[in-house]
């Protein structure tokens, strides 16, 4: 029983790190642009397929393929931001929240259905990062999971170093705190918006490429993780990157335990996806600012 518990925690930790990666991207987009990206799950899916085709068609080894996926989703993110989101920064749009929800939701529709047309509705599975598994006592953890978790952890560490130590990261943070003050000290906010959306998209894409060998790829694979990502982002506090990392791991573990210990096995499976959504509802009701929310990042 204890081994089973430990295995659920361990599996939860792996998915939690991937969730955290998706959520960190969502958080960067939210904190800099002040919008919720409803197309985030589709970018995650796109990253998964980009990695797959980089391996299959271009012969890129699995791990560099993750970077190919991130580069591609970065470019897609920047193009979308340049074409569709620029009206948000001027007075052209009456109600910015609604505009952002609608166009990012439309991005989701376009990407997901284009994926069904282009890649087919059937599941695809890219080759493993590394074959085999480690055995610790009675526990078995595949190398794929370890590589994905390790890679995700490295990306998250890299992200926080980037945000703290580089001038671009600092500029992003400055714009997220105050656009006007950032403009006064000479930061071009418009360039930072493009960087933030591209970076957020790239993190989602990287997560998609990392998860691909563990669960297989399908055009609708982004539906659920995007809901999970919203749970994490809200749970961790909108705009707080460490909050979203802790929230991600927390959700992964709680979900793993919830499915493992639900009394009615049939329903547990059907409801496993409702778990995160319920957590989202409760968080929104009880503590809308999340556990680590920063006051100046209130969404208005």
């Amino acid at each position: 029983m204890f081994e089973y518990f430990l295995l659920q925690v361990l599996n939860g930790l792996v998915t939690g790190l991937i969730y955290a990666l998706i959520a960190a991207g969502l958080t960067i987009i939210f904190s800099v642009l002040k919008i919720v990206n409803f197309g985030h799950g589709a970018l995650y899916m796109l990253g998964g397929y980009a990695g797959y085709y980089a391996i299959q068609l271009l012969g890129v080894p699995p791990i560099p393929a993750v970077f190919v996926a991130m580069a591609l989703t970065f470019v897609v993110g920047v193009i979308f931001e340049r074409v569709m989101l620029t009206p948000l920064y001027s007075q052209k749009v009456d109600r910015k929240d609604e505009y952002a929800i609608i166009v990012t939701f439309a991005l989701f529709m376009v990407l997901e259905n284009a994926a069904i047309v282009a890649f087919g509705p059937f599941n695809k599975r890219p080759p493993s990062f590394a074959e085999g598994a480690v055995h610790i006592g009675l526990l078995t953890v595949t190398y794929d999971r370890l590589v994905a978790a390790g890679f995700a952890a490295l990306l998250l560490i890299g992200l926080s170093l980037f945000m703290q130590r580089t001038s671009v990261g600092q500029a992003l943070d400055a714009v997220s705190q105050s656009r006007d003050a950032a403009a006064i000290i000479g930061i071009d906010a418009k360039r930072m918006f493009a960087v933030a959306f591209g970076l957020g998209a790239a993190l989602a894409g990287g997560a998609g490429a990392l998860i691909a060998p563990i669960f297989s790829l399908s055009p609708t694979m982004g539906d659920l993780p995007s809901v999970q990502a919203y749970v994490i982002v809200v749970l961790g506090g909108m705009g707080s990157v460490p909050g979203s990392i802790i929230g991600g791991i927390l959700l992964g573990i709680v979900e793993g335990l919830g499915v493992g210990f639900y009394p009615d096995a049939n329903r547990a499976l059907a409801y496993s996806n409702a778990f995160g959504a319920l957590l989202l509802i409760i968080t929104l009701l009880v503590r809308p600012t999340g556990l680590f929310g920063r006051a100046h990042l209130r969404m208005e």
Partner: peptide, 24 residues
């Protein structure tokens, strides 16, 4: 108490749970 995207997220989660309930 919810506004803008928070309300959208809340209703999205509600719709998802309701759909899963219909299935389960």
């Amino acid at each position: 108490r919810m506004r803008g995207p928070y309300l959208s997220l809340f209703t999205l989660a509600f719709a998802l749970i309701f759909q899963l309930m219909l299935i389960a």
